[in-house]
Design a protein around this nucleic acid. Structure first.
Lengths: 185, 185
DNA sequence: TATTGTTATACTCTATAACTATA
DNA sequence: TATAGTTATAGAGTATAACAATA
């Protein structure tokens, strides 16, 4: 307690506090997204019997249309490889994806959508879109959407480009290939 | 609007598709927040040994300074009462909060921060703020922050006003639609 | 040796339903 | 009866570490 500042909000660490505007923005952002995620989860569970993580995996596969390796598939969705194996196991058991070993690199596993997986994705996408429109986009103007997209794209790219955490001990490597920049969408 | 067969993005349901700009916004938002949450969780766990949910509960109590009932405390943080009881149990066992029955209404439980809880909150808040600044605010201009705060406040209030969350009707059947994909109703 | 992925395991968290007790 | 909260329990999800196979 050597601060001579009149911080009053716990910042006694040489860390300048966030402005009230930033704090309000921060909490509004996290709470709004939390509510959004919760509703989206419910819609996906009810209509498709899958979780949001699983939906994201299906979406990644649907977007690519060529099989992806597990490592590629993990991108931005899952933070541990065993977690992805677990989810892929569920999706495979449900008949939504197939896993096969890559001819090029025998270590890799190629993941592809089955017809059922593609059909499920197409079936639940409209409801998914409707929920996000109802909850997220309805109260926003076109300009809001543009600005929000611009902001969050920058923030996301900023976070993706961040150096690995300095606090990370030597053996830490949870994310996929930190040196490899994100591939084109 | 009966099938036009030219949708190409799965919207064959009478649901107008989101504009590409909206889709991009939507995915950027969710991914950015997911990354942010992950980093924040790590900071809180490392520096304070608590989860983000627990941090939010402590923050709510710190902001109010008068004890809150469990119901008040749940606001926006937790989606089931048993979940809050679980988290409150953890926080109480850790000596960070106290629970006592309310003198005014014997059914209610009053939750208050202990000195240790308040101290922990003050101790980890700077690091929390630093992480959010580094990840979220650094790539943003003041105008971005203002606009983002305005947008997310509106979105949050919109969602809060929409469905009575805790009004889970009894007719709600278990949401597992085993392996048979749900049929659209 | 490094990389890709899987397995085994332990743990955290959430939600539903049944329960107690107060109003 | 309705409300506030707890308990019991079951299930989903995650992360770490040890492992096998390939590069």
């Amino acid at each position: 307690m050597t601060s001579t500042r009149t911080a009053g909000d716990g910042s006694d660490d040489g860390v300048p506090p966030l402005h009230p505007e930033q704090l309000q923005t921060y909490f509004a952002l996290l709470e709004a997204v939390s509510l959004l995620q919760h509703h989206v989860e419910q819609q996906l569970r009810t209509e498709g019997g899958i979780s949001y993580v699983q939906f994201q995996l299906l979406a990644n596969l649907a977007r690519s249309e060529t099989p992806l390796t597990m490592t590629q598939l993990a991108d931005g969705v899952v933070y541990s490889r065993s977690g992805l194996t677990y989810q892929a196991g569920l999706l495979e058991k449900a008949g939504l994806i197939t896993r096969s070993s890559s001819p090029g690199d025998e270590r890799a596993t190629l993941v592809a959508l089955t017809d059922a997986g593609a059909a499920l994705f197409r079936r639940i996408l409209p409801g998914h879109i409707e929920v996000s429109r109802l909850l997220l986009f309805n109260p926003l103007s076109d300009d809001d959407v543009r600005h929000l997209g611009d902001i969050m794209t920058r923030v996301r790219d900023h976070m993706r480009a961040l150096p690995p955490r300095s606090a990370a001990p030597r053996k830490r490597r949870p994310r996929s290939t930190p040196d490899t920049p994100a591939q084109a969408d």
